[in-house]
């Protein structure tokens, strides 16, 4: 379980100090699929980065099964990330001078060494020798997805994983991620602008100005092919 207690995050100093997260609290169960919705700039990415231990928080607590993230030093945080989490970022962040296979290897080396099946699953088998600069935006995003999944995380953080994908690819990638999540039972926290995707999740939160303004359970989960796009 992830317990989030009264977390607050500021950006900048002095006059331009800006409250990106404002006293946010919630619990996330193990194996849960949580979707985060909200307008641009509402603090979704910040929330993700703070609860995954990428960014420090200014106040509050984040507790993973009794381990306090906010008390960890850099070394402990690294160890924590290595053992527990994987990311799919809004901006992909691939390593530009390595080809697709080697990029995926970065995650696979810490998880499931048999990385080719992940590349296949996101439909990039033919392009596994290409470099990121030779791929389209959506293809790069799929590399980032394969990289994260092959790490076999306990908690997967996804920031707009289907933002750069067309409907057909988007659905198939989402379907793959969701099926894998159901099979491997990892916790999944996904930020998205596509409100339809919320129908595939267990729970949805809505954010506005750094606060959670709405939170509801989804009793009728749909598959990636049943929702609108």
């Amino acid at each position: 379980m992830i317990e989030i207690k009264n977390i607050t995050k500021y950006y900048g100093k002095g006059e331009s100090r800006f409250k990106a997260l404002d006293d946010v609290s919630m619990n996330i169960k193990d194996g849960e699929f949580l979707v985060i919705l909200g307008a641009s700039g509402s603090g979704k990415s910040t929330f993700l980065n703070v609860i995954s231990g990428l960014e420090t928080l200014d106040d509050g607590e984040v507790i993973y099964n009794e381990e306090h993230l906010e008390k960890m030093n850099e070394k402990e945080l690294t160890k924590f990330r290595r053992d527990n989490v994987a990311f799919i970022f809004q901006q992909y962040y691939l390593l530009p001078h390595l080809n697709v296979e080697k990029n995926v290897k970065m995650g696979a080396d810490l998880g499931d060494k048999d990385y080719l099946k992940y590349i296949e699953a996101v439909g990039l088998h033919d392009k596994r020798k290409k470099h990121p600069s030779e791929l389209s935006g959506g293809e790069q995003q799929r590399v980032a997805i394969a990289r994260a999944l092959s790490k076999k995380p306990r908690v997967l953080f996804l920031d707009e994983p289907t933002g750069a994908l067309d409907e057909k690819t988007g659905r198939s990638v989402l379907d793959y991620i969701i099926k894998l999540q159901e099979k491997e039972k990892f916790t999944m926290i996904m930020v998205t602008h596509n409100a339809n995707i919320a129908e595939t999740a267990d729970r949805t939160i809505k954010m506005n100005s750094g606060k959670i303004v709405d939170i509801y359970d989804n009793l009728n989960k749909k598959s990636a092919y049943e929702i609108g796009w």
Binding site: F80, F87, L110
Partner: peptide
């Protein structure tokens, strides 16, 4: 720098 940062994000040690 960016590659190192990304490796650190994934949990590779310094």
């Amino acid at each position: 720098q960016k590659n190192i940062a990304m490796m650190r994000v994934f949990g590779y040690s310094a």
